[in-house]
């Protein structure tokens, strides 16, 4: 895995959004989800976006990760202007640079944990051996070395989410997006997921952007953005960075 410094160019943010707006129209109703929002994220940090449901945090995640287009404003990710990329180019960008972890684990029932992780790597043009090496390493990193031949039906919720993280991590992405990764899990498993995400940001220099209203996550984040009505209300860095990964949740 690459060292922490790869994407930390002097002063260049890994992810930059400037004046982005997004509205959804259903029938006569026009809902402004994001309202002239600007944001800059640095590499190697775990940033948490929190806020009440419907505040636009999931839409912000979709836009910053290149899954959705903006109405106005622009998004720069790793030096690429996302708005100028067509569907194919966006897919290629996501393949090379991004990882995703969703609230639902979205694992294929037919595949073993190892195959779930290996599958996207097959499409990255990696050799068979390299793909397998990375899959093995990622699963070891999330502590599932002994469970990697099992199918999702044989894994617990926490284990499934760790497989999903390993699937994203094995791609060695510069950007890792997580949407409510802990909301389907109990306290102990949620804690473990938070620790893993935090460790990824630290040790791989990955820009981790996590959307969640889970208060346990706050103490682990390097930076917390509070959103409401399509705007960022506050942007703060929690004072006590939890040094060891075994931090006690608040």
């Amino acid at each position: 895995m690459h060292p922490a410094a790869t994407t930390e160019h002097a002063g260049t943010p890994a992810l930059l959004a400037e004046g982005i707006s997004k509205a959804f129209i259903s029938g006569q109703q026009r809902t402004q989800v994001l309202d002239n929002l600007s944001l800059s994220l640095d590499a190697g940090e775990l940033t948490l976006i929190s806020g009440p449901s419907g505040c636009g945090k999931s839409t912000l995640l979709a836009i910053l990760s290149g899954l959705q287009k903006v109405d106005s404003g622009h998004v720069r990710a790793l030096g690429s202007e996302l708005g100028q990329l067509d569907m194919r180019a966006l897919e290629r960008f996501r393949l090379q640079h991004t990882g995703f972890v969703f609230q639902g684990f979205n694992l294929f029932p037919a595949l073993s944990a190892f195959e779930q992780v290996e599958l996207p790597l097959n499409h990255m043009g990696l050799s068979r051996n390299e793909a397998r090496r990375r899959a093995q390493q990622s699963l070891e990193e999330v502590g599932l070395a002994h469970r990697m031949r099992l199918r999702p039906s044989e894994l617990s919720g926490g284990e499934k989410q760790r497989v999903a993280i390993a699937r994203a991590l094995a791609k060695e992405p510069e950007l890792l997006f997580a949407d409510e990764p802990t909301s389907a899990l109990d306290a102990a498993n949620g804690q473990m997921i938070i620790d893993i995400l935090h460790r990824i940001a630290r040790t791989h220099g990955t820009t981790v952007l996590c959307v969640s209203h889970d208060p346990r996550l706050v103490v682990h984040a390097d930076r917390v953005l509070a959103m409401e009505d399509g705007r960022i209300l506050s942007d703060r860095r929690p004072p006590a960075p939890t040094a060891p990964d075994q931090g006690i949740p608040s």
């Binding site: 990760s65 899954l67 569907m87 194919r88 897919e91 290629r92 960008f93 996501r94 393949l95 090379q96 991004t98 990882g99 995703f100 969703f102 639902g104 979205n106 694992l107 294929f108 599958l119 996207p120 499409h123 990255m124 699937r167 994203a168 791609k171």
Partner: peptide
């Protein structure tokens, strides 16, 4: 039945063609 999984693969950059 597997739509969410396919969508996840697409999010990870696996092309619609594949």
């Amino acid at each position: 039945g597997s739509m969410r999984e396919y969508a996840t693969l697409n999010a990870l950059g696996v092309g619609v063609g594949a």
